[in-house]
Write a protein that binds this DNA or RNA. Structure first.
Lengths: 190, 190, 190, 190
DNA sequence: GTTTAAGCGAGACGGTACGTCTCGTCTTGAA
DNA sequence: TTCAAGACGAGACGTACCGTCTCGCTTAAAC
């Protein structure tokens, strides 16, 4: 029942991949601020129009590239206690190296472009958030979260600290920090 | 011994103020993404060179304009308990209306320009952070913070949630949120 | 038994006509400078490739459209005297209204594209030229043209003035002008 | 007495010359159809905006370059007879070598862009036309032109043949052609 | 009172990248 | 084999700003 073929030449999967790869390469080599649609197209051996045909801005290209790469990295730990699950989630998240420039660049773009901000939030940020919300829901079932505590605020604490350190780069985002934050959140939840 | 007047025409205070005012006006009218040195200069009736002579980038102009306006707003509450002080600080902070676009723009710039990031952090962010650190120090003296709790992590929780909500705009930054966060932080600190 | 049928789908006459009609329509509506193969194809409901398969450039399409329309308009007057024949030819030629934009556009293309220039000259310009050459030959037989006069130069005078006024649009191309020019050419020929 | 200095940095004469020279060079090397503002700017070592600041289109650049070069080439011969003056004018005009591509390109542009057409006609074509009109006026004073002959039509004959041969390139534009045309025009004028 | 040394407005300059446009080619499935 | 549809690489278009560079003119202290 997949006969909904559109007429005309179909989109080139090879070109799509070349563009996403070029975006990542340019980004890691020259940084987000120096990223340009022109540069991505040139490196990908593609025309600029081919990029504009499928993505509204360079940020959307980068976001797609990110999601393409890290498709299934959002693991939902389930080790029986909030403390263990949280520590696992944070340590796991912090372990991803080299992503800081990309994440920071995407956030900058989201701050400057409200249209992209929606994409960024819904397709990227809320994916991770949903994973952690599941963890909290299980903890609530186990009675580890007091009734008067809004789980959304707990989520904001976890991701707030994470992004705050990521953006400001004033304090480490390592396993030790992960464990420390997990401990505090468990206490705050009661 | 302030007689070390330099030769030549002195800097025009009127122009300085006109530029800062024009920056704020342009920003509120057209948003940070649409802000340009050219536009600020035109609105201020100033030459571009006059801006570049005194500020390295448009972000520095905006930062100066911010600091000029909100010079003395960082109050350090002292009401005898961490809960009261925290709630006071947060409610006071959240009360500032209309600042979101400016703050978001400055953060975006800081993420894209490492040189400006230092300015932003040291002259703006750390000012607020120091105020809250004082509050926490007093609470520690009163024994409201457990010995194994790193106050810096508590600071990151408070400012993390604050900035996370400010940047994502997915949840309110109102008095209720301030009280809720204060309660959780007090519990986390023990 | 003209069995020289080629295999495959035969060329669509309907499409051919639709393309020529679309070219004329686009041209009169938006002018030659705004003419594009893309636009012609879209208006004709044809694919771009169908145009490129049969015509090397948009100018060739327009030239074909012109020749298709004005197939048999080149009358060769024969009234017994050079003066009468010339006046007849010119008045007849000048009577064609609304052709200026098309002719001017074709000439512009010919000036920019040497390959098309050959088509334009041989298939269009020289057709008219041959007609007038016949008139002159008859006049020469009647002794109306001096032996030392090169008929080709007389042709260039007639078509030169015609095109010069057509292109520059600085003086009228009407019946009065036709008669005036005819008189001068007759005198020049002796 | 000419103290009407405008404020701001004055226009760079060196850059102006570099752009005009680059235009001529590009044109002779690659032809009018391949001429691009981008190419002129690159060869001149100038920014594109600098070109667009002073000329509305590439054709205006080329026209300026032409006029700059051939500033004073329009000689008005005066040898005592229409035949001699005309022959002189034509032979002189035809002698200019290598100008054909430039002239043809400018004419093509004029045909496609009505705004430029006015510039081309008034600043270039009518200059030459005025020169020849002077010649004809003197001939009329000497009685070499019949009263019923419109001198403007004689002008159109001369320039018509000239441009017709220039554009079509089907017959030579040499001294012999010049003399031949002069003879015919003299006879036509009576 | 002149000289010297900036600061100032204006605006031209060489650049970079933008997002759009059209070119001529290529690649589908249907006719 | 042609056709409509439409994606593709290429590259010029004209615009917006960037940060720098002259200009002539103030403005004030130093001489």
């Amino acid at each position: 029942m997949t006969g909904d073929r559109r007429p005309g030449r179909p989109r080139s999967e090879a070109t799509r991949r070349a563009i996403l790869a070029a975006a990542i390469d340019e980004l890691t080599e020259r940084g987000y601020a120096q990223l340009s649609v022109e540069g991505i197209a040139a490196r990908a051996g593609a025309g600029k129009q081919t990029i504009y045909r499928w993505w509204p801005s360079k940020a959307d290209v980068v976001l797609d590239a990110m999601l393409d790469e890290a498709a299934s990295l959002i693991a939902v730990p389930d080790e029986g206690s909030l403390a263990a699950d949280l520590a696992g989630f944070l340590v796991d998240t912090f372990r991803q190296r080299g992503q800081r420039p990309v994440l920071v660049g995407l956030m900058a773009e989201a701050l400057l472009d409200p249209v992209f901000a929606v994409q960024f939030r819904d397709r990227f940020l809320f994916g991770r958030r949903d994973a952690l919300r599941t963890v909290l829901a299980r903890a609530a079932d186990r009675g580890e979260i007091a009734a008067d505590v809004d789980p959304e605020m707990l989520l904001d604490i976890v991701f707030g600290v994470l992004w705050y350190r990521l953006l400001l780069d004033h304090a480490p985002l390592d396993e030790e920090a992960g464990r420390q934050l997990a401990t505090l959140v468990v206490r705050a939840a009661r």
